[in-house]
Design a protein around this nucleic acid. Structure first.
Lengths: 229, 229
DNA sequence: CGCGCTATTGAATTGTTTCAATTTAGGTGG
DNA sequence: CCACCTAAATTGAAACAATTCAATAGCGCG
């Protein structure tokens, strides 16, 4: 785990983060002065629900999964975070401990920004707050879509939706998952065995082609989309 | 459905809403000038996913359910809103149409505040933004808890959690649900039949006592809490 | 190239849903 | 205030989907 003062790495941290686009260079530098960068290896824990922090953790490179784990060891993934997105944002405004565990899905560089600095920046520049509110809105929307998925729709629908979303995100019918199938299952609230069976079924129907452990090629997008209705 | 200019009803709208406590009287009056109050009867629809609006809908009196409905007619309740809480807040900052349907669970008075006024107030008074962010944080936390519930925990656990939360909210072991059992089932992602069976089981075990259609008395809180772990 | 971790497959079991029938609650009108 | 009536809730039995446990297969990292 490497640590450095952020002004050493010009292209890092807030230069990547849409939320800070309203800041002047001086303001950006101000925030950077008190922030640090850390690198996590694949599988490494970034924080747990036991961690208490009032900082903002920005993903600079790599991918992070946020998840909850039950006492029986069952995991529910809440969100996968990509570069430019941030975590720990809830404790920033709610004074509560971390609500989830965070793990690096691959080698990941995180920039840790002082929470106090953020609040200061908001007071000086309310447009940042509105930008934050936009991000939060989208997160609520996404979370509520997830509730809808898990609560209303059956497993095949959830799988189809996830595959199609991933394809949309990569803008290709050829998908390399950034997470394991086990994680995939934990995202949609099922077991890896069930996911495995359903994916095989999709392949048998000629809707997708599976190859390797993390590759899915969409062959019949229309049939997958039909499941969503 | 009654409509009136809000300055007619002094104790309504923003006087109830924690979010606006940082506003001066003049600022409050300013917002009230462009807002209206509407009253909805039990079961009445307040808006649907087809409604597009950039206003903030504040619950003044009564209760509101926010829900999503699948093409097969299955309903998933996302949230129950109490006086002082607001809806439509997502479209306010994300420019998207309403993400859910909203129904009055009882006679409900709603105050509709102009979205533009809110944004203006935020620019003039960033503390409002931080207050908004706090509320949003809590909403994300709640939504993510719901994902955890539905994704990881079995139905008995979800029921126990809901009962205990309601008891906590009313600060009594004697609960009168503000929603039907059918809605209860839709909140936790199951059917009314399954809920009915599980509640009967809880009663048989001596954990709760059911009476009427909406009354639950907690007899053995410890046993219910054990289910949560 | 081999080992370990991840994924797949099978079979039995469990939990939940579905559909249908019945009961109960509680509002309405006499 | 009681009887009625409708909507809501309960119960039963059968069908189904998903999980669990266990055994096997295979990818991909070193």
């Amino acid at each position: 785990m490497r640590s450095c003062h952020c002004h050493d790495c010009e292209h890092a941290c807030i230069h990547n983060v849409p939320i800070f686009k309203y800041l002047t260079e001086v303001e950006k530098q101000q925030i950077l002065n008190t922030s640090i960068t850390k690198t996590y290896l694949k599988g490494e824990m970034i924080f747990s629900t036991l961690t208490s922090s009032s900082n903002l953790w920005v993903v600079n490179t790599g991918k992070v999964k946020l998840s909850k784990i039950s006492s029986e060891g069952k995991e529910q993934i809440i969100q996968i975070l990509h570069p430019g997105e941030f975590l720990g944002d809830l404790s920033l405004f709610s004074q509560e401990p971390m609500q989830s565990n965070a793990f690096a899905l691959q080698k990941t560089e995180i920039c840790i920004i002082n929470g106090h600095d953020i609040k200061q920046a908001i007071r000086q520049n309310p447009d940042i707050a509105i930008k934050f509110l936009e991000v939060y809105s989208k997160r609520i929307t996404k979370a509520e879509q997830m509730i809808e998925q898990i609560g209303i729709h059956d497993i095949e629908t959830r799988i189809a939706k996830t595959i199609l979303q991933e394809a949309d995100h990569l803008n290709s019918t050829d998908i390399t998952l950034p997470y394991s199938k086990t994680d995939f299952a934990s995202m949609i609230g099922t077991t890896r065995e069930t996911l495995s069976r359903k994916l095989s079924k999709f392949q048998d129907q000629g809707w997708i082609k599976l190859s390797g452990q993390r590759h899915i090629t969409i062959l019949d997008q229309d049939s997958l989309e039909e499941l969503l209705q």
